[in-house]
């Protein structure tokens, strides 16, 4: 299976009080559990990213419960109020329990 890789776009600098746009994506097939194996006819088991969350210095920005209706390579865009400098942590949780994460620092503009 292709590597599961997160990718985020966050401005490197922002002033306290700014609203910034954050974009995130993770490569993941989001197997719905409804597809059939062409050769065996068996259902391919569900395997999706079922949760995504972004937090700033431990406090939540957004969290999403994902269902199989989210497209492959799940993409999210949302806005954040920047209180000041700090680290944003992004986490994606797979059905199999794996957690993928990436962090980005925001510096003062």
């Amino acid at each position: 299976m292709a590597k599961i890789k997160p990718r985020v776009k966050v401005p490197r600098k922002a002033k306290a009080g700014d609203t910034i746009t954050i974009k995130t994506l993770i490569s993941h097939p989001m197997e719905t559990g409804l597809r059939k194996d062409k050769k065996t006819g068996d259902l391919i088991p569900r395997k999706i990213i079922n949760k995504f969350n972004a937090s700033f210095e431990g406090e939540e920005i957004i969290s999403v419960d994902l269902d199989p209706a989210i497209s492959a390579n799940p993409y999210f865009q949302f806005e954040m109020k920047v209180p000041g400098e700090g680290t944003i942590r992004f986490e994606w949780t797979d059905d199999d329990g794996s957690v993928y994460d990436i962090e980005k620092k925001i510096k003062a503009a």
């Binding site: 409804l34 406090e59 957004i62 989210i70």
Partner: peptide, 25 residues
């Protein structure tokens, strides 16, 4: 869709506004 659930978004302390974009099936 065969199943109704698509996603549930929760907006936390640092969310600016209550909106989000994504791509769905």
């Amino acid at each position: 869709n065969p199943r109704p659930e698509v996603a549930t978004f929760k907006f936390g302390k640092f969310a600016a506004g209550s909106s989000a974009s994504t791509r769905i099936r």
